[in-house]
Design a protein around this nucleic acid. Sequence first.
DNA 1: TATGAATGAGAATTCATTCAT
DNA 2: GATGAATGAATTCTCATTCAT
Lengths: 210, 210, 210, 210
Amino acid sequence: MAKDNNKNVPSSEDSKRLSILNAAMAEFCNGYEKASTDAIVKFAGVSKGLLFHYFGTKRDLFLFAYDYAIQLVMAEFYDLINLNERDILERLRQIALLKMDLMQKHPMVFNFIAHASFPDSADVKSNILEQRDKLTKDVYPKLFYDIDRTLFREDIDVDTAISVILYTIESYAQGQASPDKSTADYYGEYKRYLSDLERYIQLFRTSFYR
Amino acid sequence: MAKDNNKNVPSSEDSKRLSILNAAMAEFCNGYEKASTDAIVKFAGVSKGLLFHYFGTKRDLFLFAYDYAIQLVMAEFYDLINLNERDILERLRQIALLKMDLMQKHPMVFNFIAHASFPDSADVKSNILEQRDKLTKDVYPKLFYDIDRTLFREDIDVDTAISVILYTIESYAQGQASPDKSTADYYGEYKRYLSDLERYIQLFRTSFYR
Amino acid sequence: MAKDNNKNVPSSEDSKRLSILNAAMAEFCNGYEKASTDAIVKFAGVSKGLLFHYFGTKRDLFLFAYDYAIQLVMAEFYDLINLNERDILERLRQIALLKMDLMQKHPMVFNFIAHASFPDSADVKSNILEQRDKLTKDVYPKLFYDIDRTLFREDIDVDTAISVILYTIESYAQGQASPDKSTADYYGEYKRYLSDLERYIQLFRTSFYR
Amino acid sequence: MAKDNNKNVPSSEDSKRLSILNAAMAEFCNGYEKASTDAIVKFAGVSKGLLFHYFGTKRDLFLFAYDYAIQLVMAEFYDLINLNERDILERLRQIALLKMDLMQKHPMVFNFIAHASFPDSADVKSNILEQRDKLTKDVYPKLFYDIDRTLFREDIDVDTAISVILYTIESYAQGQASPDKSTADYYGEYKRYLSDLERYIQLFRTSFYR
DNA sequence: TATGAATGAGAATTCATTCAT
DNA sequence: GATGAATGAATTCTCATTCAT
C-alpha cells in the first residue's frame, strides 16, 4: 500500500538523485568553484529546481557527493580485500593492486575523489579535511590491524618503518594518479606501476625485515 | 645623483607592485577561482585599474605571483644551504630544518605556494604544472648532486632507497604544513617535528646504510 | 482550455522578451558600442540576468533585434502593398507613401533599423551586412517583378534607368529620415516630401518614358 | 631668435601632432566608441598625456581629425579640379575620376572620412552632421556654379534633374567605397566603376539633355 | 613640452538560489 | 515531486582622463 517502499525497485526519485550525483561528480572534477550547477542539471537531464530541492545548496551537494563516492568505493573495497594476510608488505601489495582495479572500474569517481580531497575553496575545505581525517582514522586501523610485527628487524622502530612504507606507497600512487592522463598507454602504465611497486616492496623487505 | 637609476631604492611603482603581489599571494590562498581581484586591490590599497595595468589579467597575476614566490624562497634557500655535506641524510636534515626556518619567516608565501602548486582551475593548471616540473628538474640535481652512494648497503637499490627517503620527508613535511595552523603551539610543534625527523633519519641510517 | 498552448495569448515570458526587445531597439539607436545593457534592462524593467538568459550576449541581442525589427516592418509592408500596378513609377510612389506611413507608425523601430543597418562596430558588421544583402536579394525581385518595361523610351538602357530611379528615391528618403527629427512640423514635412516625390516622378516620366 | 617661427621647418611639436592625427584617423576607422586612445598613442609613439595635452578629449580629437581630414582632401581636390567645363556631366565625370585618384592616394584618410561621416555615437553625431551640412553648403555651390543650364531639355525641371544626377553619382560611389575592400582586384574594380559611370552619364545625356 | 602611473566608474557576463506554477 | 523563468550581487576587465614630475 505504501508508495515505493520497495527499495529494490528504484523510484523515479532515486534515479534522478543518481543522475544528479553522477553529473555532479563529473562536473566537480573541474574544481568546486569552477563547477556550474547549470552544467550539472543539464547533464543530469533534470530541472534546476530539483537539484536544490534534493540537495539544498551547491556546497551540500558537493559534500554529499564526496561522502557518496567514498562509500561507493569503500564498500567495494572491503568486499574484495583479504585481511588474513599478516605480512604488511603482502597486504599492501594487495591493497595497491585492488586500488588500481577499482580505479579502472570507476575512473570518474576516483577522479572526483582525487580532486575533491584537495579542495581549493575555503567554503568546503574544512568539511573535506574533517571527512578525510575521519576516514583515515577509520580505515587505517582496519587495514593494518593484526599485522605481524615480528617480521621486522629488532633494531628498528616498527611504527616509524610502517609510516615510511605508507608514505612511500601513497606518494607513489598519488604521482601515478594525479595528472589528467587522457592519452594513455594504460597497459604499459600499469605494468610499470607494478614493477615499481615490486621494487619498493623488495627494498622494504631487504632493509626493514629480518 | 642620477634620478632613480639606483634599482636598490624601490620606486613608488615597485612599492605598489609589491603591495599587489603580497595581497595577491594572501588572497590566492583561497584558491584561484575564489580569489577576488576586488579583495586584492582593496587590501593592497590601490585602484582596480592598476592591478590590470601591471599584470594584465587575473591569470597572469597568479602565475607571476607563483614565479615570484618561488624565486623569493629559492634565493634565500640557496643562500643559506650548505652543499658540502655528502651524506644524503645529513643533507636532508639540513634542508628540512632550513625549510622549517623559511616557513616560519615567510608563512604566507609558503601557504600561497602550497595552495598554488595544486590548482583546481584548468585555467592555470597546465602552466603551474609545467613550472613545477621545471623547478623539480632544476632543483633536485642541485640538491642531490655528489652524494656519497657508498654509504648505502650493497644489497639494496640506492635510487629506490633515495626515492623512499624523499617521499617520506616530503610527505611528512606536507602533513605538518598543510592545515591552516592558525591556533598553534609553534614551539611544541617544532620540537615534535624535529624529533620525528630524527626518528626517520635514524631508521634510514639503520636500515639503508651499511 | 489547454494551458498556454494558444500562442496568441502572450505569456509572461513573451511580454518580458518584448520589453527587452523594445528597450534594446531604443537603446541601440545610440550605437551598438555605446548602448548599455544596464540601460536596456532598467528601461525594460527586468533583471540583468534575464537579458542574458534570453539572448545570450549583447551581440546576439542586437542581431536578434535587427531580425525582429525587419520582420516586423516587412510583414506589415507586404500586408499592405499592392503589387498589381505594373508601372514602376506608380509602384514606387505607393512604396514611398507606405514607407512613410510605417515610419510614422513605428518611428523607433525605423530609427533602430536605420542605425543598425550601418553599424560601426566590427563585432556585428559582418552579420548585419550579410543580413542586409540577403534582404535586398529577397525584396527587390518581389518589388520589381513584372514591371512594364515597354513604358520606357527605346533609346535608353532600362536597367540603368531603374537604378537611377531607385538611387534617387532611396537617397531622398534617407535624407528625410536620417536626422533625429525630434522637433518637427510633421504635417509640413510630409506635404513637402510628397510634393518633392511628385517632382521626381514627373521628371522620370518626362525623360525616361516614351 | 623667435623659437620655431619658421613654419616650413616642422617642429617636434608639429611632428608629434601629426603622428597623433594619423594614428587617430587610422584607429577611428574602428568606430568612435571602439577606438582606443591607448592604441592611438601606442601607434603614434607618444605618451598618453600628450594626446590629451594637445587635443583635450577623445571627442575633440575625433572632431579635429575629421576637420583635418576634410581640409586635407579638399585642398588637394580644389588644387586639381578644373572648373571651366560648364557641362555638368563632364564636370561630374572629372570630379568622380579625381575622387577615385585621391582615394587611391590617401586610402586611410578616405576610409576615416567614410566611417566618421556616419557616426554611431550620439556623443559626436550632432557635430559631425553639422560639419557635413556646412561642407555640403560650402562645396556644392562651388562645384556647380556657372553650369550651363541651357543644355537641359526645356520640358524638365533642371534643379530636380541635377538632384537626380547627384544622388545617383553619390549613391553609386558610396556603394563602391563602403565595404572594407581589403582583398581587391583594384584595376578590375576601377575599370568597372568607370564603365558604370559612363553608362549613367550616357543615360543622363540622352534623357535630360536636349 | 612630455611622461606614464594611477584612477574608478562602468562595461558585459555569470551563477547559486528562489518561487510561482 | 518537478519545472525553469527570474533574480541581482559579484566577477573580471576597460578606458578616458588626470597629475605629479
